[in-house]
Nucleic acid binder design. Structure first.
Lengths: 222, 222
DNA sequence: TAATATTTTTAGACTGCTCTAAATTTAGAT
DNA sequence: ATCTAAATTTAGAGCAGTCTAAAAATATTA
């Protein structure tokens, strides 16, 4: 049985590997875990002894297949709980992360499988991120950044790159939600802003930064 | 913010006080917490410093009003989660205790109030125990032991005294559940067994021990 | 490539919770 | 009332996870 803390370290390494594809550096892990490099080194030795990571002095850490399996199951639990909170308890998408950080450590396979069933086996969480199934497999989709759409093209919002509360609240204000149909009407070159129409209802202007954080599935013209 | 462990100690004292009405002895707490008396003494000092209990050397411990409030909110969370697991995720009543022991430590008032609402503000959990409301008030009922019914009298099962998995599974076998209408048809003096009719359907014989663990609300004859 | 900056590890210590063993206090029995 | 048994506390130590400060390894740059 792993401790809460050990599980969080595994998740941190998973997160880093998701982005960089390289071995997670001690400092990078310390940054995520909000602790010191020295503490990380200690924990790396421990996790290495348990065969959950491969660790080489001064070279960083990587999840073993066993460690990756645990990390994936944490992601699964996290995203299923987020889905539960939004779908059943009417939380909004920017509120659920912290709560799911706690709930993901609840230890019961039966519980998580029942929850999955209760939610009707969702494939994506409220932020559009894929939920791995019980075997750890993710259902991937063809997704591109909104900024990659050309003028006149349309897409359905299927996810957000950035999960910041502030960013999500901003989207709420603009009435942009998962599933929204977004049409790009204009790209202003000199200040890199985009004019878009949301759900054929209202026009808004967004920055390039925002356009890079919105993941869409392109709607093909007939 | 209290630790998982501190919270469990408060709950242990609460549990003892529920039964004995006296100060909880160090040994009694150690028994519940599955630890040694020495560890309990250490923790009592700590909780006393935080004003969560009143503790006097060699005299035992009692919850302060603040400590009682925390214990009650743990009971509330525990029983609401049990209700959720049974009502929404189809767990059976003997499975939910261990899971609720974990879930009760999830820290979010908003979550628990939303859960309460989602469950439609239940007053009793799947074992018939009262769920304190957000202010810590319990809704009590007139309840007597099944063994206190006279021959020919009837009652509705509204709770069980003992929460043992084995006992609950035994009740499942006998098809006795919360709400069942139970008629006492015979009390055999020499071996202290009871003959009862469950839901006007089947007759079973139960021991006195079982009859003492079943809490019923007497159905008054017309 | 030598000097410097950065990253990482080691050493040693602290906190929270636990333990065993010994000492102390209280309760029970004669 | 004293002796004994039981309950409780103290003392001292261990483990997990954390820290700071110093040492070692690696990376960068002149």
């Amino acid at each position: 049985m792993l401790s809460f803390t050990e599980e969080n370290y595994l998740k941190a390494i998973y997160k880093i590997n998701e982005k960089t594809k390289e071995r997670a550096s001690t400092n990078a892990i310390a940054e995520i875990m909000q602790t010191t490099a020295a503490s990380v080194t200690d924990m790396m030795k421990k996790l290495s002894n348990k065969n959950l990571i491969t660790y080489e002095r001064y070279k960083g850490s990587k999840l073993s297949s066993q460690g990756a399996q645990i990390a994936t199951s944490l992601i699964r639990k996290h995203r299923l709980w987020e889905t539960f909170l939004v779908e059943k308890l009417s939380f909004s998408w920017e509120e659920v992360h912290e709560l799911a950080e706690q709930l993901e450590h609840i230890n019961s396979n039966k519980l998580i499988e029942r929850l999955d069933e209760y939610l009707d086996f969702p494939k994506y969480d409220p932020h559009g991120d894929p939920i791995p199934n019980a075997e750890g497999k993710f259902t991937l989709r063809e997704q591109i950044k909104l900024s990659q759409l050309n003028i006149g093209e349309e897409g359905n919002l299927i996810g957000v790159q950035n999960h910041d509360d502030q960013f999500l609240e901003y989207l709420n204000e603009l009435n942009i939600k998962l599933g929204s149909r977004i049409t790009v009407t204009k790209k202003v070159l000199y200040d890199k802003t985009y004019n878009i129409i949301v759900d054929n209802e209202h026009t808004v202007q967004i920055s390039e930064k925002v356009a890079n954080n919105l993941m869409v599935k392109k709607i093909l013209a007939l």
